[in-house]
Every structure is written in structure tokens, then in C-alpha cells.
Design a protein around this nucleic acid. Structure first.
Lengths: 341, 341
DNA sequence: GTGAAAGCGCTAACAG
DNA sequence: CTGTTAGCGCTTTCAC
């Protein structure tokens, strides 16, 4: 018997058999229930160690109806902002004894839509979702029967909780800062053509509001449209600016990677930053501290975003939080002025 | 009845009741088994749609003994190399219909040890583990009864599969390259004092082998010890080099973030890169393409590493792969020469 | 082709 | 304090 018992994975039953108690008692020991005689407890613990028993999470989950895990869906982890967001979410979830499943959508609308209803998704208790391909028109697709928290601004006023940042106000502050440095020909990189709702749209709004307040006339040539916000796009936009011979003395990039890509090209073309061209980004990713020159940027408070998002998912998982109205929460931002402005 | 049925989450039974068939038949439809009459199938599908039935993964897992997910444990996602590794692993796992749980250890030995036996871990089918705090002496702790693949070089000749990169050869190639550019006073950043087995040790080995072959005398002052490999450490090391007044005409940094941190400081001190100081890193993270100047580096083949690791975990999950001897696999590296050398 | 029933490993009544 | 047992939702023999 004993030999056989060690051959397959130990269960409550094998432990119970070895310790000569019932499964209930073993379960009590494992779950630190009171009402177990000290002596019995020791015998059970010995059996647990001897058999190398580890409780089967799957069975627990089936029983309890919770998996103690949540899913985080982002476009891709290779993008520093999302990597840092994921880091914060995993960290925060871990402190609440939850694990995190990560899904990458590639920013593809179809994959995003699929994910929302995928059976795989329900291996976790809820979803923190940063959509990129979906738009305002897909809002209704967010009606799901599990805890869902939306991040970002592709979709607003949806049927779910929403954790956001103050895009418009933060962008306005960024441009205000450039203006306060005496800049007037400010290029903006990363706009999305025709977008009305979305991160790009809101940041562009804030930027333009700032210009208006300073009575700086708007100039279409200074708005650089880039769908994706990778380094290559920032480089590309700067390139276009230069080869079109458009004059500019500052750049507001919609995120840091765009800014860094642009920085590289601008410097390569022989301009001094910030003397000739001031550059400010958005996100405050780690590497902005170490670029040359160090990049000024806007810190959107990822840690706070992660905390709010994880909290919201978990709250919705409780019967008490079940039926509350959808909440929208915005994290605080902070201007981080370094050398590039 | 009908009203009630829609109230709680649908199960095979509620679907079966609505479609007026047995659960077996519903199961057959869900799992695309043959032997279902077309007419029945349609009725069942209608019921599934009507009830919004989604199969319960937890129950499936309990039944099948597999979760179709694996855990990836890394020090932290905020480190670009690990973010890019995670991206590759998630991508690769996804193509095999597996999801990925991410754990962050912070490089802390205790947390790493805990993770290996945590009950949480067994919510997935296997573990891809990049230890940082554990050392060669902890090798025996890697004897576990689930599929485990070790990444990196903290631990070699362990009892598990191991996916590694050619650290020593790649480092040698990097230093060879600097030498071929006429450099003789080559600082190396990121060494670990007293380490014999480990990424840092192997890269230092390769570096020194290169120097020996070129008959360049070894100089202790040019070996900069840095435990962590973040930007700040690279900056710190370069700072020490400068303030100690040590002459150097090149830097081999043990990873790209160290290199970028150092680059920044070196430039800040007024040196031209590569004219005065050539710099080469290691990892080929995305941002090396966009630093100023673009950083030369070594590409360790993350995609290949991810693929091999995921493949190994899944293979071990099969009865066929169960008892094979531990395998060690090394990915190919490639020197990427850009502007910094 | 379809149905009945057992059982994956666990926890929570309920007894005692 | 401890034992018995039902059942979470699914798949899978085995009958029919």
C-alpha cells in the first residue's frame, strides 16, 4: 500500500489513510481550521510531508468557484509601458494572493473580441483589459458576466468599470510646459486620424487646448499621425518632419517610445536637444531617465492604475460588489521635467 | 424553469435540459465529437447560444488533469529583457493553445524557493523558471514532480531541462569585436564577485578569454562589479570608472540596460561614443536600436529560447517525455554591430 | 447516436 | 474534535 501511495500524486485520501484519520481532518489541518487535536495535527502534518502532498488547486477551484487568479490582457509586453503595467498588476495581485494570467492581443480587434468570450478566459476570476483595436462602437461587446475592468481610453462610458488616466489634462500640462520654455512651433507625434474617442484623441485635445489658451495658431503640418506608438513610428514621424522641411522647436510625443524614436532622429540630423528642439513624452517609462538627454515626460501613475484595477476586479468578484454601477476611476498624473526640455 | 436557468451560469445540464438531450450529447457537440445527428447538433447549439454557455475550464481541468497553462517565473517584468522574454513565451504558448501565468520573484532566493513548491504553482501544468537569487548550491531544490525548465545560468547541471544561451562564446565574440576596433583598455561592467557559475561568471570568462588570446594583460581596475543589472547600476559603474580616473577606451556591459546606463554617464562626462569610448551590450533589447548612438550588442535569440522552453515543458507533460534525461539546449547568438562601436 | 452514472480532488454540511 | 457524504462541472466508459 505504502509504496503505491507514493507513486501517484498524493491526495487528501492518501494522506488521510497514512495518518489514519478522515479526509475532513486532513482538510482541517491543511486549511488551518481550529478544532483539531494537537496530536492529530502533528500526525497529519507528518503524513503530508512524507507524501509530499500539495493541495490540488484545480479541485479547490471547482469546489469554491474561484481560481484566485485574474487575467491581464495587453497588446504586447515588448512595449515598455505595458511591461511596466504588467509588472505593477502582477505585483499588486500577488500581494492579495492572486496570480495573473497574461494574454497578448497584438492590439488586434478580432483577437480582443474573441478574448472577451473565450473559454480560456474563465480559467480566471476576472479580466483587466487594455483594448487597442476595439473602438467606441464595440462598447456593447463589453457586457460580460464576469468581473471586467477596462484600461485606457479606446472605450469610454462602457458598461464596466474603467480605470483611466487624465490624458487630456496631462497632455495640456505637457504642452503648457513646452510653451513656458518659449516654444511656439510644437510638433505633436502619434495622433490618430479621425479619432474622437481614444488615448490619442484625448491627448491631442489637451495639447490643442493648451495652444489655444496661449493663442498659438494651430498648424496642421505639426500634427504627425502615427497609428502605432513604437520607437520606429517616432523615428518615422521625425523623419517626415525633417524631410518636409517643416520648422519646429519642440515635440510633444504621445508616449515615451515615440519620443525616444524621434529624439534619436532629431539628434542624428544634427539638432541639439533641448537647445534646438525640446522633447517631452508620456508614460515615464524607466528608460526615459537614462536617455541622452534624459527625457521629460508625464507620469501617469501606473502603480495606482494597477492597484485600482486589481481592486475593482476583486470587488466585483464579491457578492457585495456584484451589482454596483460601473465606476470610472482616474489616476493622478505628474509632470516629470528632465533634460530634454 | 427557463427563467431560473438563465439566472445562474449555464452548465452542460442546463443546456441539456433546454435542448432536451443528455449531457453526453451536449458534451459531444461542444467537443466536436462525431456521432451526433445533425438535427440534434443544431438544437444543442441553439441552446448553447441561448444560455450563453461557456464550458467551465476548472471542471475540465479537474477531469483531464491538465490546465493548458504554464507558469513563467522571472525576476521582474520591468527589466526589458524579461519583458521581451515573457512576450516571446506568451506568444509561443498561445500558438499551442496554452496560457501563461506570470510570477515575479524579484530575484529573491527565498521567494524562488517558495515558488517551486507553492500550491499556486500547480494551478498550471509546468514551470519555466529564470532564477536569479538561487545558486548552484540550491540545485537539488529543483527536483520537483512537475515539468520544470530552467532558464539562464545561475544553475547548471541541475536535475531538470535547461535552456541557455552561449554566454561565454558570445561574450568572447563581443570583446573580440572591441579588440578588432583597436580597443585595448576594455572595461567590463556587471561582474559578480566570487561567482563561478552564473551568467555574469560565464560572460566574464568569455571576455577574459578574448583578452588572453589577444595577449592583452588583465587589469583588475577595469572589472566593475555590479550585483543588479539595471540602468542605474550601469550608470553607477561608469561613474566609478570616471571618478577613479581609470583610463578606458571601451566598455563591454553584461547586458543592454547596464550599457545604456553607462552610455548616458560617459556621454554626460563629455566623451564621444564610439570615438573616445566604444560600448557593446548584451541582449539586443528593442531600445538598443534607438539609443544615441544605436548600441552594438549580442542577440541571444529570445524567440528561440522561448520556443525551446515551452516545447520542453509541454513534452515533459506527456507520458512519452516524462522520463527522458534532463536536456540542456543552447540558443544561437548573433553579434549585432551598430553605431556604438 | 444517445443516455446513465461514476469519479477527478476538494470542501462544507451534517452527524456523532 | 472527527467521520461520512454530497456535489462543484465535466468527460468517459459502458449500455441501450
Amino acid at each position: 500500500l505504502h509504496d503505491w501511495v507514493t507513486r501517484v500524486a498524493a491526495t487528501l485520501y492518501t494522506v488521510a489513510a497514512l495518518a489514519k484519520v478522515s479526509v475532513k481532518t486532513v482538510s482541517n489541518v491543511v486549511n488551518d481550521q481550529p478544532y483539531v487535536r494537537a496530536e492529530t495535527k502533528i500526525r497529519v502534518q507528518a503524513a503530508i510531508v512524507e507524501l509530499g502532498y500539495v493541495p490540488n488547486q484545480t479541485a479547490r477551484s471547482l469546489r469554491s468557484g474561484k481560481t484566485d487568479s485574474l487575467t491581464l490582457a495587453v497588446p504586447e509586453l515588448g512595449v515598455p509601458y505595458f511591461a511596466e503595467l504588467a509588472q505593477a498588476v502582477v505585483h499588486c495581485a500577488d500581494s492579495l494572493d492572486q496570480s495573473v494570467v497574461i494574454e497578448q492581443t497584438g492590439g488586434d480587434r478580432d483577437r480582443e473580441l474573441l478574448l472577451l468570450r473565450s473559454p480560456r478566459r474563465n480559467a480566471s476570476d476576472g479580466l483587466i483589459f487594455s483594448p487597442l483595436g476595439m473602438t467606441q462602437y464595440d462598447k456593447t461587446k463589453l457586457k460580460v458576466d464576469y468581473p471586467l475592468v477596462i484600461l485606457g481610453e479606446q472605450i469610454v462610458d462602457g458598461p464596466t468599470d474603467h480605470v483611466t488616466m487624465q490624458n487630456s489634462a496631462a497632455a495640456e500640462a505637457a504642452t503648457n510646459h513646452l510653451i513656458s520654455r518659449g516654444r511656439r512651433r510644437i510638433a505633436v507625434i502619434g495622433a490618430h486620424r479621425g479619432e474622437v474617442v481614444g488615448t490619442a484623441a484625448f491627448r491631442l485635445d489637451g495639447h490643442q487646448r493648451s495652444l489655444e489658451r496661449a493663442r498659438i495658431p494651430r498648424c496642421e503640418d505639426l500634427i504627425l499621425y502615427e497609428e502605432r506608438w513604437h520607437r520606429a513610428n517616432g523615428a518615422h514621424a521625425a523623419q517626415r518632419l525633417l524631410s518636409a522641411g517643416i520648422e519646429f522647436d519642440a515635440i510633444f510625443a504621445m508616449n515615451d517610445t515615440l519620443a525616444l524614436g524621434a529624439l534619436r532622429v532629431v539628434q542624428g540630423a544634427g539638432f541639439q536637444v533641448p537647445a534646438d528642439v525640446a522633447i517631452i513624452g508620456f508614460d515615464n517609462i524607466d528608460e526615459t531617465k537614462y536617455s541622452s538627454p534624459a527625457l521629460s515626460t508625464v507620469d501617469p501613475g501606473v502603480a495606482e492604475i494597477a492597484k485600482k484595477a486589481v481592486g475593482a476586479v476583486m470587488l466585483r468578484g464579491l457578492k457585495t460588489g456584484r451589482d454596483a454601477r460601473p465606476q470610472t476611476m482616474a489616476a493622478d498624473f505628474r509632470l516629470v521635467i528632465r533634460e530634454s526640455t
